[in-house]
């Protein structure tokens, strides 16, 4: 492969032949896609799935979405007051739709959701013949929840998640001595 002028004449030509022959004798890298499903890397961004029970219709995702492709409709429902309590209200989700013809797969909605209602799914086979059919309602988004993989394990040398640290710390710590009951100080 030397580029110097002293190379043997024809060495480059031979090198070219060797490269192609070697490639031919190796297995080709083609995935036969429709028959053989591709092995997608972890955290693949295929489609956004919705876990409807976790959604509080807080609208954070819809507002953070850079191209406004999330549509949310909801109404308030009054829960009858329990005995001795007062009436409470809660949000009921009527419509949750993502227009995947607009979505740019940035994942901000997933990051911003405080209630873990949105997830990345690696599922990617949802092509449509008409661009208007790319808006998927909460029913379809919910079906994709089944395809959401378990979160991948942490990297080998990554620091432990701080929740785990905290839990371990509380286990290791010596049991705290019983705090003496505070003496009632006489009012001065």
């Amino acid at each position: 492969m030397s580029q110097s002028g002293k190379a043997i004449p024809g060495a480059g030509l031979l090198q070219g032949l060797i490269v192609t022959m070697r490639t031919m004798l190796h297995r080709s890298v083609t995935d036969q896609y429709p028959e053989v499903k591709p092995e997608l890397p972890p955290r693949s961004r295929g489609v956004i799935a919705l876990l409807e029970e976790n959604c509080t219709s807080c609208m954070l995702c819809a507002r953070e979405c850079p191209d406004w492709c999330i549509y949310i409709d909801s109404h308030k429902e009054t829960i009858p007051a329990p005995p001795g309590g007062r009436e409470r209200q809660r949000n009921v989700l009527d419509r949750f739709a993502i227009d995947f013809s607009l979505c740019m797969y940035c994942g901000i909605c997933i990051d911003v959701c405080p209630f873990d209602a949105l997830f990345w799914s690696p599922e990617f086979e949802y092509a449509e013949l008409d661009i208007r059919n790319m808006t998927h309602e909460k029913g379809r988004l919910g079906e994709w929840m089944a395809t959401v993989p378990a979160p991948p394990p942490h990297d080998h040398h990554a620091p432990r998640p701080k929740e785990v640290d905290a839990a371990l710390k509380s286990l290791d710590a010596p049991a705290r001595p019983e705090r003496p009951a505070r003496k009632a100080e006489p009012a001065g």
Binding site: T20, M21, T23, H26, S28, V29, T30, Q32
Partner: peptide
């Protein structure tokens, strides 16, 4: 086929 495999493809299948 030969050209495909020399380019690490499969060619017509």
């Amino acid at each position: 086929k030969a050209m495909a495999h020399m380019q690490s493809r499969l060619g017509p299948m």
